[in-house]
Computed example of a mutant assay.
Amino acid sequence: MTTPLTLTSGRHPDGTARLTVSGEIDMSNAGSLAQALDDHTGPLVVDLTAVEYLDSAGLSVLFAHAERLRLLVTPLLEPVLAVSGLTDLATVHAAAPDHRPPA
């Protein structure tokens, strides 16, 4: 069974392509995330503030595109990305405490 995951494309306020991700990212749906990242060329802001769970399959997908990603994350995900080493390869920004993903 596939874990619920929602991927929404749009534009960041600075004009950069944006992918808003919500739900859980695991081995059952990491392919959908990979496809969404592959569909965008160039720099990409990935808003992970509505992600409730991220496993190693999801991390692997992010690593494959790290050099062109700006990740927007919650304090919950920040340590996971730091321990994995992803913060050394991608730009990671902590969301403001009152941040809400775009509807």
Rank of each mutant, 00 (worst) to 15 (best):
R18C: 01
G10S: 13
H12C: 07
D14C: 10
D26L: 12
A36T: 04
G10N: 10
Y53H: 14
N29A: 12
P13T: 14
D55M: 14
A36K: 04
L19Y: 06
N29K: 08
N29Q: 12
G42H: 10
T16K: 09
G10I: 09
T20P: 01
A34M: 08
T20C: 00
G31D: 15
H40P: 05
A30N: 00
D26V: 10
L48D: 00
I25L: 11
A34F: 06
Q35P: 08
L37H: 04
A17G: 14
S32R: 11
L37D: 03
P13S: 14
Y53V: 08
G42P: 08
R18V: 01
G31N: 13
R11G: 02
T20N: 00
L19S: 08
S22R: 15
L54G: 00
S32M: 08
R11M: 09
D38L: 13
S22H: 11
S28T: 15
R11Q: 15
T20V: 02
A17C: 10
M27N: 11
E52L: 10
A50G: 13
L33E: 01
A36R: 06
A30R: 01
A50L: 06
L33K: 04
P13V: 12
L48K: 02
H12K: 07
V45K: 01
G15P: 04
S28H: 12
L19H: 08
T20D: 00
H12D: 12
D38M: 10
A34Y: 06
